[in-house]
Design a protein around this nucleic acid. Sequence first.
DNA 1: GATTTCACG
DNA 2: ACGTACGTGAAATCC
Length: 878
Amino acid sequence: MKQEQNGKQKRFLVLDGSSLIFRAFYALPGLSDSHGQPTGAIFGFSNMLTKLMAEQQPDLMVLAFDKSRHTFRTERYADYKGTRDKTPEELLSQFPLLREFAANMGIPFLEKDNYEADDIIGTLATQAAAKGYDVRVITGDRDALQLVRPNLRVLLTKKGISEIKDYDTAAFEEEYGFEPLKLIDLKGLMGDTSDNIPGVPGVGPKTASKLLLAYGSVENVLAHVGEVSGKKLKENLQTYADQARLSKELATIELHVPDLTFAEEDYRIQPDMEKMQAFCDDHELRAVWRNFERLYGPAELALDLDGGENGVAAQDLSYDLWDEAAVKTAARAPYLAVSGIFSGLAPFASLEGLAVVAGPDAEKAGFVARDSAAFPALLQLLESDQQAVVFGLKRYDQAGLRGQKAFFDVELAAYLLEPERSKYALSELSQKYLQEAAPESFDDEKAQAVWEAKAISRLYPLLGAKLEEEKLTHLMDTIELPLVEVLAAMEQNGVYVNRAHLAEKTEEVAGRLQKIEAAIYEMAGHDFNLNSPKQLGVVLFEELGLPVRKKTKTGYSTNAEVLESLRLEHPIIEQILAYRLWSKLKSTYLDGIAGLIRTDTGRVHTNFNQTVTATGRLSSSDPNLQNIPVRTEEGRMIRALFEPGEGYDCLLSADYSQIELRLLAHMSGDENFIDAFKRGQDIHARTAAEVFGIPLDEVTPELRRHAKAVNFGIVYGISDFGLARNLHISRKEAGDYISRYFERYPGVRAFMDKVVAEAHETGYVTTMFGRRRELPAIKSRNFNQRMLAERMAMNTPIQGTAADVIKLAMIAAYRKLREAGLKSRILLQVHDELVLEVRESELETVQAILHEAMEHVVSLSVPLSIDVHWGRNWAEAK
DNA sequence: GATTTCACG
DNA sequence: ACGTACGTGAAATCC
């Protein structure tokens, strides 16, 4: 079953020198050697290179560079890459060094008049791939993805240069949904601002993808322009047809650069160790030399081609095709580690097959394809009480394996153990917990699933034991695992958005923006890019001479707070604030959401991410439906676009009243605080009365506002500085507020002190339900970092407990709605609020269920209470 | 990719 | 002396 792949296939690494050196230059601060020669870029670049060579073990290499700005593309279109600034001198001066470095390494350094690095890369890489070499293009430029094909993968540098994403055809298609070569059609339609390729006005990535999905190419879109829906779109496609063709041409990498032929002998790596050492000595690149030595010197890594101890050893990814008897045998295993192959666009999914490893000491992995006779038997087994373990349970749920109690999820386990990690890829968990790296690539998706199932089968006992040790098992079993089913359903439900209404609003806002823009340019005396804080800064603070209130690390600050303070200084400010407001609404909400309405369901299906936040909250993305505007009248019109879908009558919102402060009252046990909530008082007014020493009925709105800010401050981990800044009062006054607050609520002070002290002792804090967050910075000698950690120590137990509570309430509400046989269902969670789609006839019952589920899900020393509102859209449900 | 800005709880 | 409120995600610019 195992294929002998790449056994003798030689590996050719093709580097986009221009792209990588730019990345290296901007990633590293201005290093220089003692002669004053800047060396940051060369340092970063050579480190990257040696690392890459150690990992990739290439046989052949080449470095390609742009020669000059003038190319056959600028010939065709003078403005091509016309927005690029000129290369900084500190970088230019490093190019001769780079040539020298490449020469010493024995790596060919190629540049061609009239062509870009991309074209050299395209020409050599495709020739070599056609000849059967294992070709890998390394670049930071996404354009190169169009080259992906059999034998040719593109490794895209992300996040500076340290992280790399590997694209083969399958990976590309998974992300983009079409074949790599179609990337040029995509650019033809949408253009590319960074290269100044115009594209077709009004066509962004969403529209372009849609058009390509329907018609396949720019030419075919233009040929069928009559069928395209949307009047404006059709018009633009007709008017800008030539521009679209030109854009595609500009985006196409040339694969036939003249006088350039791939021949193996020209690209063998032949380093000159002596020259290399002299070079590194000369420019004080000690770390580079060390890496280089490790690579070619004492010969450890260099000889480690076929593995050894560091995880590159070929792993056994063979498997048996299971029949029903094999499935039956597997049922006797203590658990089944499972990894699925899915199809379908999230949040909808189908299982195409499952790789299975039966328990910790299975002899061999099994594979069961969807069409095999054993598949139903395996599904049945997984739906029984058989313990099953997966990575990323939600997707399985969405593929139909729903409502099972005997599932465990290693991704969720890793999240509970380390909620601050940014990623929980199985490969990383394997590296960290099993000290075993994932293979660089897999022969096919079955081999990958087999590897995953094996990794899961070994991670499960390990992570399970760690959860026990950290007392996180209960949280896992009662909150995170049961919640998966609820989130899976919410994502599939989606929310209906009124498209017609949305389109109208978009037009309206576009018109408004144009007027504001014109007024601003008029006042400024010239056009500029209003979306650029940098250009705006020049206009406001240099040309108009307005006073500078605040600076960012790169220039003048132009945020709303600063602009607000300049309101009376110049009429342009008012307009800029208006522009910011409307352009935010248009780009993020109107255009952003329009692009994510699914044509098959007519609804938007957000992702509810369960392993993102450090505190235990959920997050929402693509689109984020947890930050839909509500605070301003203009913003609420966005909210009004969300309506009940067919078969439903209203949207209902149920939000907790002051849940964080109530939890603080309970957890701190402060009697005064608890008393306020038990009496059902307005907590901010009561706080004002306490802090300012006046009777409750003499609290003015202004005093209440100040007290409210103090309450917020307490939850965030109070500091006089922050409070002063928020209320525009002096730091001393803010300090007085805080000390009077703590005098009146001594239990709160004691609680905060205790939490911080515990964090210092143990290095972590916990919520009421045992969720934990490590705070290593609390021991930092850096004052700022330590203070930040202390504020996190105060905030996390409160925010995290609130997250625990609403998660429990969601599970309870979901179950009760189902048990009652209701059609009404939960659509969204916004941290302290649930949004449901409700039938009028069920309104009473739904409310009763929510009160019960949300208010009585835990028993505290203060009552929990919710406010419920409903209406014909989300804005009315307030 | 990093930075800035701004939307939410 | 230090110089920030806690937790998120998305869009845009400039590199």
